[in-house]
Design a protein around this nucleic acid. Structure first.
Lengths: 205, 205, 205, 205
DNA sequence: AATGAATGAGTCTTCATTCAT
DNA sequence: GATGAATGAAGACTCATTCAT
């Protein structure tokens, strides 16, 4: 099976990453088993190691791919306009990724929320572009006075992404009862801008 | 003698659970090592098995104990006054518990975020009184018009507790850089009432 | 099986080292299999790891033990007198160790002669006391004029030990035909002092 | 075309064997990696298997080739004169071969020292002409009284070749520090005729 | 004939669990 | 009840070998 084309190699890699996303979402980094991943992708155990040097590295690739997909969708769906509208679009893009790639997002969110010393650096490294994109929108918001300027933009970005993540967790924890995926973008933006409890929030939403 | 023996047994059990909390907080369920827990509690490896049938069971006991300890955290301080002030007091009480029981809380938050089928119900059960207390305050807030009335109170309670948890995670993930524990109560309340991004929030804070 | 006495622990360790010597003598460091060693010593696979951190470390212990046994025998059998006589006694002691501990000596000689980058340092480190003992005798020989003084003593020691090793190899390679173990001490000393070919050697021997 | 093809095939085989010699010299049979050998020879992994059925077989071919190359080494230079001078010339010829074929010689010496049942006969067979040549010189030495006559000439030949090998090993083990290749012929002859320790040796050298 | 992706047997190593003392 | 040595299942990772292209 030699002389495989570069594209075929890429396809196999992709399949392994997707199988990895399923395993890692289900079992976490420590609990995931390499040979399950390989089998799930349709290959024998050893094949994973033709593409990734170690379980850690495969995990990193899964995280990276997850972040890349989310970020890509992000970029596409920037309607311009108010910061609020743009962040809402971003959240919608994120949710639409979640619908299609739930495993990837689960890995991202779960491991990010678990901040294990061995996985958090990986997550952080690969999440950077994603946070960067959000931060870009927020920076413009600060510039035009739509966003408070007394808090560092990176912190704000973390808070926005955290809000989204938290809503996902609540969605999963309630087995989809509340919030539903449909509600999440609006909830995230409202919460982020107006808080969860205030009337203003209620009114504006 | 049976009496003393029983008490002694309880003390040993407690020590094992505390050592377990430390390990599980650091390494997670899969990564934790029985041997380290036992040694850390001052016993030899085998002793754990005189008290718990398996690592899983010890883990369950840690989660349960953590939930039990955390559950008490709320009753303590209710200064009365505005909803805002009362929730802030609640958050402060929560943080003060966190200071003392950081390992337990870490395990709890992690597990909550992973909603494993075998531990999530435990967490949920023990979280209930806490959520109930928060909900009580919020309900009064709704009644007096300080809190929006178009969202179910239980959802609001979940969002408040979620905000706190998210801030904890960010605290841990940043190695305490931001937010610091001191900042968390104010941040939580502001975020919950006014959002993270708005000027109103900045002004009021 | 707890509370084993220190002596029992030592005995088990010894058994593992001896089984290790057998395996390493037969298969070398790379080829040796941990579970064969453990089984051969009468234990399950994992037991080796209760005594040694890794295969390398067990190998080091085997080499050390081999060198220790050989060196010990060396020290006991120093009759004093001429350097020639003392080295002969040393060689005889060495051969008597070889008779009883052939596996250990085989490991030592084979790996020393293979100077593999990963094993040679281990061998060198553990062989040091052995070489040191020989060097001590030779240094006295230099002092009293029985040994040439224009060559560094450590080189001479290496040459003597090398001579012995070479004879062992020839013994093994010929399946014991020549030289026999009985002949080795005399051969080694003669060769070392008088050469292999000269008449002087023939006469004196 | 068949002709060229056959020659080409021979060339590729040769390159693989030389690359094999490098790997085996460095890592031994067990430690050598097919993949490294093939790459080093300028081919992809699988190519080795178009020429050799297995790693073992390639190893055998390397040993055989090494022995073949080394076998020619002696015929070259026989200056006549004293036995001593002729053996010295032989040793010099040997060292000059070593300089060019170091990897092969390393593999050979190692294997000779390990006398594995499957390779030792090969080595022995190819060593025979070399030993025979040395034995021829020695026999003349015995005849003219320059070499002791109370030891079988084949044994003497083995001892001479063994001396050389031992010096090689010490050269390699010391990373070339001592003895240097330049010193080896003189050392070998001196040691062989006069011993390593005696004054006579020192004086005559 | 060369290629190199896929394979899977083989090994080290870890560590929860057991149990004799 | 405490101990810690022994156990062996489990799992990551290696790499010789195969074989489709």
């Amino acid at each position: 099976m030699a002389r495989i084309s570069k594209e075929l190699r890429e396809i196999v890699r992709e399949r392994l990453i997707e199988a990895g996303a399923r395993q890692f979402a289900e079992a976490g980094l420590a609990g995931a088993r390499i040979d399950v991943i390989s089998r799930d992708a349709g290959f024998a155990k050893g094949t994973v190691y033709n593409y990734f040097a170690s379980k850690q590295e495969l995990f990193g690739a899964v995280v990276e791919e997850g972040a890349r997909r989310a970020a890509g969708r992000f970029a596409q769906a920037d309607p311009g306009g108010s910061v609020r509208a743009r962040l809402r679009a971003a959240a919608e893009a994120d949710v639409s990724v979640l619908r299609e790639q739930e495993d990837f997002i689960k890995v991202l969110v779960r491991e990010a929320m678990s901040f294990r010393p061995d996985t958090y650096p990986i997550i952080e490294a690969h999440l950077a572009p994603y946070l960067f994109a959000v931060a870009g929108v927020l920076a413009e918001g600060v510039a035009c006075g739509d966003v408070r300027d007394d808090r560092p933009v990176p912190q704000l970005a973390l808070m926005f992404v955290g809000t989204l993540s938290l809503l996902y967790v609540q969605h999963w924890a309630s087995n989809g009862a509340w919030p539903t995926l449909d509600e999440i973008p609006e909830l995230a933006v409202t919460w982020f801008f107006d808080g969860a409890a205030s009337h203003a929030a209620g009114e504006r939403a």
